[in-house]
Nucleic acid binder design. Structure first.
Lengths: 271, 271
DNA sequence: AAGTGGTCTAGACCACTAT
DNA sequence: TAGTGGTCTAGACCACTTT
């Protein structure tokens, strides 16, 4: 008998015995039925009752076993699909996905604590002036070389210690009220978590690893050589015209991104 | 009139006029109704008919306007919520979310092309031997100092050029068949995209920026100093015991992570 | 042909928010 | 009190896969 069939034991029709017969759905609970069911199934996977590759009980079986309607089962399974725990194949069944490092995602949101924690975080505008676009800037912002742009350098500090150095080129357009708004010290917060009015439609973001230049090291008060993360961003307005190109640079010893793959028992349900 | 109300124009009941009256749902299409509706709403946001902060038409209005059942509207909106385009607040309404850099996520999956492209990618085991765990390794793998572990060094090449250097410590347990399996050259592929049998339940992954050490630079044939990405990983089995601790290190000039935030018109629907 | 997931209906009741 | 989103029912039909 192969490893994959341990969970199904002698079941003729695929594995409805797999489920914990003692647990049932509490209709009086604040937790919705679909979330409870998803939790039960995830629990089965976590305890190894359902192993990677195993087939889940069919939707009809789950309906009967837990006395819920098909739509509710459907939602529970969709939740697990969305969360990456199982994969559903039409006509075949739903199967537990193996853990894979490639499934990992890193969220820039982890940085948001920095921007929102106004208690400890301050933003200082080091420089803000109008400059003529050089060839490189003009290409990014899709304007002509020599056209006017706004160049801003900012330094973000936490408890007085420099953590992020930001440089940004903005389209200069006297007709748009972006200028003053973008110069506010709260502008970075807006850019990052989207609070307040916004004229941004979408943006491209690149993550790179670099070594601090002399200037960057000096501003970030870092010893050299020092590794760093660089977030390059290019934002567009609702006409799909670029309006902002810039980079955040942060010392690698102050920034770390963590994530997890596989079965964790403290998930928030949604959808 | 505030900027936020431009889209709602003179509507008394909040904004059902906002929608494009010409488009309707094609019931004969292969694309499900809920996906079509989500697309229509996303289109409205992309063209600026619905701006950040605007309220979407209520679910009842959408039912009537597009002649679909409440559940279908619900699914379409859930899709947009999942994709991060709108936020639904019970009792208030559903609103267009502003674009925020903090919403960006970087997927390790982008690296998967490397591992799956066996045409151009080769894995070479540089070293594999049994070593006694030092204090650092013992702490990570939750064993005692001096216990035996398997130490593996691998080099991943694309078209003959070194791109990723991997070092890994594995629990040594003669009772588990992990040893031979983990030594295969295909083991990395398994780890990364989860193909084949797996005994992994979950894992923690850290992303850091570093500067290559002399040894790493030599193996990766990189000039110095050279920035690099480092993926540290720690995997656990179904008993929640660590079984593997290691790092992937790759030259920064060969690796880049890109992502987008906001409204893009080439989304895949699901759920 | 049987079993599976994928979609959808036409309502229902509830909790929450605003007026 | 009216309007909103949140949940749920008890089926239906379809497309797909396997036997």
């Amino acid at each position: 008998m192969s490893l994959a069939s341990i969970g199904v034991a002698m079941a003729q029709k695929p594995n409805s015995q797999v489920l914990d017969q003692t647990i049932s759905i509490d209709r009086a609970s604040y937790e919705p039925a679909y979330a409870q069911l998803a939790g039960i199934l995830r629990q089965s996977m976590a305890t190894g009752i359902l192993r990677p590759g195993n087939q889940l009980p069919s939707e009809a079986q789950l309906c009967e076993r837990y006395d819920v309607s098909p739509m509710t089962v459907r939602r529970a399974i969709n939740l697990l699909v969305d969360q990456g725990f199982v994969v559903a194949e039409q006509g075949r069944g739903t199967f537990v996905k193996p853990v894979a490092m490639g499934a990992a995602t890193f969220q820039l949101r982890d940085l948001q604590t920095l921007f929102n924690d106004s208690e400890h975080t301050t933003v200082h505008v080091l420089e803000a002036r109008i400059v003529d676009a050089d060839e490189r800037v003009a290409r990014k912002l899709e304007i002509s070389s020599g056209e006017r742009t706004i160049y801003i350098r900012r330094l973000l500090r936490t408890d007085g210690l420099p953590v992020l150095y930001h440089r940004e080129y903005l389209i200069y357009d006297p007709l748009r009220p972006i200028v003053e708004a973008e110069l506010e010290v709260t502008a970075l917060q807006r850019l990052f978590n989207g609070t307040g009015e916004t004229i941004l439609k979408h943006g491209d973001i690149n993550l790179e690893a670099t070594i601090l230049t002399d200037e960057e090291a000096k501003i970030l008060q870092a010893p050299q050589p020092m590794a760093a993360f660089c977030f390059e961003h290019l934002f567009y307005d609702f006409d799909d015209k670029p309006i902002s190109w810039g980079w955040f640079i942060g010392r690698a010893d102050c920034l770390k991104f963590s994530t997890q793959v596989g079965l964790l028992m403290d998930r928030k349900e949604r959808s």
